[in-house]
């Protein structure tokens, strides 16, 4: 079975797909990679469930990745020639997080490769500066 490289949440994962033109993902990988579990009531994460049309979503070889992305309101863009797909973040999730006013946490490396998180600085006022050399 061909392999699809799935770019999501800042990660790179590989999933086996029967058809690159219409990729599917196993329910197990939906749970382990994306954190959603398929139940009779829909796609669930904790106590929250999103109703989905399971006739569209569930196919012989797994869950239809495009239907899944639509249900989660996440953009999915693909380059079939190189067997790669990019699953972006939902604007609802991003907007909800910002609207809560809790500063989204992140972990990034410095030049030496040491990782730092915003949450390491809890207890201090922080000026977060994004800049670039370009």
């Amino acid at each position: 079975m061909p392999t699809l490289t799935l770019l999501h949440d800042g990660r790179v994962d590989e999933i086996s797909v029967a058809d690159l033109a219409r990729p599917t993902i196993s329910p197990e990988q939906v749970e382990s990679l994306l954190g959603w579990e398929l139940k009779p009531e829909g796609l669930c994460k904790g106590y929250m469930c999103i109703p989905v049309d399971q006739d569209d979503l569930v196919r012989e070889d797994g869950l239809d990745l495009r239907v899944l992305a639509d249900a989660l309101q996440r953009p999915l863009v693909t380059e079939e020639k190189h067997a790669v797909a990019s699953l972006g973040a939902s604007h609802h999730d991003r907007a909800e997080a910002l609207d809560s006013l809790d500063a989204p946490d992140f972990t990034l490396p410095d030049l030496a490769g040491n990782l730092h998180s915003l949450s390491d600085e809890r207890g201090k006022k922080v000026l977060l500066v994004a800049y670039a050399s370009w």
């Binding site: 991003r94 989204p104 915003l118 207890g123 006022k125 977060l128 500066v129 994004a130 670039a132």
Partner: peptide, 23 residues
Amino acid sequence: LVPDLYGMINVPTVVWIDEEGRI
């Protein structure tokens, strides 16, 4: 990642975050 999380469209840009991690 940070432009994605914070909805940044250009740099330089700054965000003030308080002691409790609130924007």
